[in-house]
C-alpha cells in the first residue's frame, strides 16, 4: 500500500505557484528522500499533506485516507519534525513534550518512557526552558516530539540542521531503527549525502513539479567512479586504450585521471597491467547527479 499518495496535487498561493500537478507515492516501509532547489515546493507539499494549507486542486491521501477529510485521524500516526522549531514561552522541554504526548491516544506511560529514553540518547536536559536552549538543542526537542508516539509515518523537514555530528549519527540510527520497526519516512533535505545514506528512493522536485523518482541503488549503479592513478615510470597508454566506459582520460606525467562507468572487473583487469605507485578510486557521489537536476 502507498503510505502517501498524491494525485495531481496543486497549491497556488494566489498567483504564486507552490506545487503543480504533483504525483507522488511513498511506499509503506520505505524511506523516501525529497530533494529540490529552494522554492521548489518541498515545504508546500509537506504542509498540504498535513492539512496546514488546503490544496487548490488535486488530492492527497495518507494510509489510504483523504487528508482533507480524515486529517485528525491520520495525524495520530504521523510524527512531524519542522525545519524551524518554535514553542510556547516559558515552557520547559519536558512540559512541551508531555503536552505533545497528550494529543495521542497511545498509552501514556509508554510515551513518557519514550521521552526519557530519547532524551537520554540525544543528551537533552528536559528540565530546561525551551527559550534557553540553543538552536541544536531545540531541534532535539523537535525530534523527540515527532517520535515519542511511535508514528507509522515520520515526516522530516531538514532535520539535522544545527545538530553536532555525533548527535546526527544517533539521529540517523534512530530513524533507521524506526524504519525497521515498520515506520515509513518522508525525508526532505538539502544535504545530499544524508539522502544518499538513508533513503531507499529519492524524488526530485523542481518548480512545483516532481521531475524524477529513482531508487538510490539504481542511481549508484549507474554512476561513474573517478580513478586517479600514479605509475612508476611513464604510463603505457596502450593499456587503457579500447576499454569501453572510460571518459575524460587525462595523462599528466606519471598521473592518469579518468572517469569510468561499467563493470569494475574490466577496468581492474586493465590497470593491473600497470606498475602502480598509487591508486585512488572515489566513492560514487550523487551530488553531481543531483546538481544536474538542481540546475
Amino acid at each position: 500500500m502507498n503510505v502517501i499518495e498524491t494525485s495531481k496535487l496543486s497549491k497556488f498561493y494566489g498567483k504564486e505557484r507552490g506545487i503543480e500537478n504533483l504525483d507522488m507515492q511513498v511506499n509503506e516501509g520505505e524511506i523516501f528522500g525529497f530533494i529540490g532547489p529552494n522554492g521548489a515546493g518541498k515545504s508546500t507539499t509537506i504542509r498540504t499533506i498535513l492539512s496546514i494549507v488546503h490544496p487548490t486542486s488535486g488530492s492527497a491521501s495518507i494510509f489510504g485516507k483523504d487528508v482533507t477529510k480524515y486529517g485528525p485521524e491520520i495525524r495520530e500516526e504521523i510524527g512531524y519534525l519542522p525545519s524551524e522549531i518554535f514553542y510556547y514561552e516559558n515552557m520547559k522541554a519536558i512540559d512541551l513534550l508531555r503536552y505533545s504526548a497528550s494529543f495521542y491516544k497511545k498509552p501514556k506511560n509508554h510515551m513518557e518512557h519514550r521521552i526519557q529514553t530519547l532524551a537520554k540518547l540525544l543528551e537533552l536536559n528536559l528540565d530546561k526552558k525551551i527559550d534557553d536552549l540553543s538552536f541544536g538543542n531545540r531541534k532535539k526537542v523537535g525530534i523527540i516530539q515527532g517520535l515519542l508516539h511511535e508514528p507509522k509515518l515520520i515526516i522530516l523537514d531538514e532535520p539535522t540542521g544545527g545538530l553536532d555530528p555525533l548527535i546526527q549519527q544517533k539521529f540517523f540510527n534512530l530513524i533507521q531503527q524506526e524504519n525497521k520497526r515498520g515506520a515509513s519516512v518522508l525525508f526532505s533535505s538539502h544535504i545530499l549525502g544524508e539522502v544518499q545514506r538513508l533513503c531507499d528512493r529519492v524524488g526530485i522536485i523542481k518548480e512545483g513539479k516532481m521531475i524524477k523518482v529513482e531508487k538510490i541503488s539504481d542511481l549508484l549503479e549507474k554512476s561513474t567512479k573517478r580513478f586517479k592513478l600514479t605509475t612508476k615510470g611513464k604510463a603505457d597508454k596502450a593499456v587503457l586504450l579500447n576499454i569501453t566506459g572510460i571518459s575524460e582520460l587525462v595523462y599528466n606525467g606519471n598521473d592518469i585521471n579518468f572517469l569510468f562507468r561499467g563493470h569494475l572487473r574490466d577496468i581492474t583487469k586493465a590497470i593491473a597491467k600497470l606498475d602502480l605507485v598509487n591508486l585512488d578510486v572515489n566513492e560514487p557521489d550523487l551530488e553531481e547527479i543531483f546538481l544536474h537536476y538542481y540546475r
Partner: peptide, 14 residues
C-alpha cells in the same frame, strides 16, 4: 503569531 502553528495544527485534532 508565535509560530507554533506547525506544532498545534499537525496534531491529531481537528
Amino acid at each position: 503569531r508565535d509560530k507554533t502553528s506547525e506544532f498545534i495544527y499537525t496534531k491529531p485534532v481537528s
